[in-house]
Design a protein around this nucleic acid. Structure first.
Lengths: 155, 155
DNA sequence: ATTAATGCAAACGGTTTGCACTACT
DNA sequence: AGTAGTGCAAACCGTTTGCATTAAT
């Protein structure tokens, strides 16, 4: 598939609608939530809770950890965010989970890449065929060595 | 690599030789290490550090956490154990890493299965081809729904 | 006699909790 | 006014560290 150009990190969530979404559930729109939403809307892929706190602080230095975590819970309840567990063992939050992708983590250089939909599909299909196991692509996180690092290790 | 279809959960480590292995490196054989080795030798697959501590305590109630973690470090250095990160986000230790396998974790029922070599091979090959990425199979941990659970969710 | 390894206690870092207070609605 | 959400501080849990002591070699 024309993966080169056709992988569009779609933005299925309209962040400006979140306020309405919250209100619809009897929840409230606060400055702190606004800050977190703003940070999240600038975030692609994955972040740890601690990273989000840091980024929030750069917007609003008075940010408090517990508020961030509590808001993340709420947003997860609304399906706007999902958490999983990255290669470093820490909790990670995925923004916009409907963008189909997993992560590749290089244990050599520490870099992380997204696995675009078509590549993930092979993995998914392979396990579906052999095991009837439905892989959750948004939770997919694979460790190993990237091209660059495995060359270095080769000799 | 000769990744034939013959998946034998080999026991490549002869635990009784560990004492010698340690000594060969100028390291020492202590009662505490004996306890941990005993626990590990009864363990298949993965355990968290905390679980190991608990099991050690049931053998020797005086077990101290730091000793366990330090010994795990040593054993990892000898290649007898490896750590990675499980579906629950906690640090996990894999016993006998030379048995080539990853793990499949069902988010529905919480069960975990090993992925035998031949199935993992498809995943590995797929990513090697598309990305020149060398997957570390011993660190492979995939979440999703097993056959049973995805049926229940289907309607 | 060396010096690796232990026990202990304290520190750590990310996350969670209880509770009185604030501020959305 | 009512109650969701906040700030704060303290608790938590798994893990790590420093250091004096013990014990394997």
């Amino acid at each position: 598939m024309g993966s080169s150009g056709s992988y569009v990190p779609t933005r299925p969530v309209d962040w400006s609608e979140i306020r309405a979404q919250l209100r619809a559930s009897g929840l409230r729109w606060t400055p702190q939530r606004r800050t977190l939403i703003e940070v999240l809307s600038r975030t692609d892929g994955h972040v740890t809770g601690a990273e989000l706190i840091e980024r929030c602080r750069s917007v609003d230095p008075t940010t408090i950890p517990s508020t961030v975590y509590r808001t993340l819970d709420v947003l997860e309840g609304l399906g706007l965010v999902r958490h999983s567990h990255g290669a470093n063992g820490r909790e990670e939050f995925h923004v916009l989970p409907s963008g189909v992708h997993g992560h590749l983590h290089c244990t050599g250089c520490g870099s992380t890449w997204e696995i675009p939909a078509d590549e993930a599909a092979e993995v998914v299909e392979s396990l579906r065929a052999s095991r009837r196991f439905a892989v959750d692509v948004t939770h997919l996180s694979i460790s190993g060595q990237c091209a660059g690092c495995s060359e270095k290790t080769a000799h």
